[in-house]
Design a protein around this nucleic acid. Structure first.
Lengths: 230, 230
DNA sequence: TACATTTTCGAACGAACGTTCGACTCAGGC
DNA sequence: GCCTGAGTCGAACGTTCGTTCGAAAATGTA
């Protein structure tokens, strides 16, 4: 019984993950509507009808790609935030985590950013829920930053969505041959955002030192290692 | 002789402009690939084959939408910049102009931001050229700002593209029922960017617009004189 | 009126689309 | 040897796609 939700042989899951990687690449190159299942067949080497043994529709394929990518980003972020309370550092971790994943998974990044509106029905609702959780997490961090007295008067929704705009738009221009490293870009964007929302009453480039000794240095957090996909 | 490049009866141009508006709306709702010419036929009330009297291909339709929208944005910007030399004010004008057009033309905004990669061949090259001119203009303003000594060390490409990210990503979240006015959002984003790139050695909060030194005769040839739609 | 030009559209074209179906191969367990 | 289920695929289904074409309608000109 294939195509059910859980409990396949490991070989099944492994091949599905392989297909998802090829599909993400095809979707990122031709767009979800512009890419055909035949394109994915050609790219993955699996026959057209053979693909449907692993997923039941093109929509589900997109759903799975977005689900896995989003889940990875949110899970990693929550892990990295667990030990940090300083809102300034938490913002830096958010930006770093986001761009770290994006720039090391360019195909998934583009599918997440560019094909966010293609899902329908249940698939759409589930992805929207994860996305909202992610946004709320970021908004909470920003509100903490504001509570600490370091942010000037501004609409928090506009501020946080501006930050996401900076980070997500990168799929349209990032070129590893020309642009700085993911870490450097993350530092630049986090700097623009943090200084950009600051009220100038206290320095924001340094942790404001609450009951929190983690990551007292603003510059080099321990390197965020990226594991292989899946 | 229809469908040639120039010199039609005014009625032809008027109806083409009408079709372009309906097409922009359809493209913004279903995406370029996801929308069919039959959808545009239904939305505009013109028969399927009747549409092809006004444009020769679906690609050309997208090209015309992007060309007119981009030309308008760049032309308006150059007009508004002509009398201003202060780099800080010039940045504010850039942001205001961009968001002003975007938020008052939501369909065209989404087509510009989301369907930038769908054109091919000559169409693609021509739009890319306008876009590059727009980006270079923004980069020039940023370099002026930097020359004035107000910007801290950072990669100018990353900075300017971060600003465009803030502005362009808005098509994914802007809701006129919930969000502030276009002008307020523009001020917030310009503020985040200007404070965000500042080095803190001098105040960047400058009175808006007027009472500015004029000069700097950057003459503008009206090569992109496109009629204002809407 | 009669003619020429501009504008419209129904019908159809071939191509490509997502998906299905039944037959096939190939293991591993009896 | 035979059975079962997982995995694979060629062929085809019905639908929709962008585009074309010739003829009809509408409009302008004398």
């Amino acid at each position: 019984m294939p195509k059910t939700e859980h409990s396949h042989h490991p070989a099944f899951d492994r091949k599905l993950a392989l297909i998802l990687r090829y599909a993400a690449r095809v979707f990122s190159e031709k767009g979800f509507e512009g890419a055909s299942v035949r394109d994915i067949s050609r790219a993955s080497g699996v026959s057209l009808s053979g693909l449907y043994y692993y997923f039941e529709s093109k929509q589900k394929l997109l759903y799975l790609i977005q689900l896995y990518a989003f889940s990875n980003i949110v899970r990693r972020l929550e892990e990295r935030l667990a030990a940090v309370t300083d809102p300034v550092v938490r913002v830096r971790i958010l930006v770093r985590n986001h761009l770290d994943y994006f720039l090391h998974h360019p195909a998934e990044m583009k599918v997440l950013s560019h094909e966010a509106d293609e899902l329908e029905g249940r698939f759409r609702r589930e992805i929207a829920e994860i996305k909202k959780r992610y946004y709320s997490l970021a908004l909470g961090i920003f509100e903490d930053l504001r509570s600490s007295g370091a942010v000037r008067r501004m609409n928090p929704r506009v501020a946080v969505l501006s930050l996401f705009g900076m980070m997500n738009w990168i799929y349209t221009w990032y070129n590893p041959k020309v642009d700085p490293s993911p870490e450097a870009i993350a530092d630049t964007m986090a700097g623009i955002f943090l200084e950009g929302v600051a009220n100038g009453h206290r320095p924001l480039r340094v942790s404001n030192g609450r009951a929190n000794r983690v990551a007292h240095s603003t510059r080099r957090e321990p390197e965020f290692a990226v594991r292989a996909a899946s």
